[in-house]
Design a binder for these strands. Sequence first.
DNA 1: CCCGATTTTGACAACCATTTTCATTTACGC
DNA 2: GCGTAAATGAAAATGGTTGTCAAAATCGGG
Lengths: 130, 130
Amino acid sequence: MSNRRRDAVHEVLRQSEGFRSAQDVYAEMRAEGAKIGLTTVYRALQALVDNGQVDVLRTGEGESVYRACASGDHHHHLVCRRCGRTVEVAGPAVERWAEAVGTEHGFTEITHTVEVFGTCPSCSANVKAG
Amino acid sequence: MSNRRRDAVHEVLRQSEGFRSAQDVYAEMRAEGAKIGLTTVYRALQALVDNGQVDVLRTGEGESVYRACASGDHHHHLVCRRCGRTVEVAGPAVERWAEAVGTEHGFTEITHTVEVFGTCPSCSANVKAG
DNA sequence: CCCGATTTTGACAACCATTTTCATTTACGC
DNA sequence: GCGTAAATGAAAATGGTTGTCAAAATCGGG
């Protein structure tokens, strides 16, 4: 199941700091001269997500954004709301809390989504300066 | 700042168990004979969200869904993935964890989104039975 | 009650990310 | 080289949401 296009898309994500949208990735690849269609970018992204090689989350505006994740383990994200820089964080406390809250109400097969947003140190500095 | 339409939309949400989409709310109101436009439903929903009288979250498909929340306090949701039934839960532990994780990495103005999904007791029973 | 000003409404068009369609191209085995 | 199956991408379709703008409801004097 090799796939040149998919690897190219994956590579773009690997070289990015934060989350990127599909349109964004497509635009960059075209700008670099790559002959690839938007459709293929979407398909590659989906395949990577299915493979667990890429994380996906929704922005407040309903756009899907993707990021190559460092580990396959379960983790959450601390995302800078200004520059998009992302830090992967583990949260054993949250996992246990979610599980406990669900069980407490009789719910089973508990899953959860957690995203933390903030302003990163450099953006914070820029705001003060500028 | 009274508004009959907005109150009507709010009422529909109050009488609903779980989260409802804008289209869904609109369809129900029309079915009940209400003379209201889709645009107005969207506007009412946004106003209610801005007022903190209604919670909003995004489904995996990028659709916004709304719910009248019992308290104006900060809280999270435990949502049944089958029937949409929702329980509001407080999570002091999570609030603290999010704040701590952000601070630890130098981030400021920390916010977070947390949603817990599971199968509620009755749906769980139905699955076993059916 | 009447009139003009302001706000609210809603039918319809515009948006835009994403998906589908489908004809063409590419990859691979023989 | 040939045929078949998979991959590709341009263009059209989709669908939730938002913008436009004229008509309708509401309000405040006079």
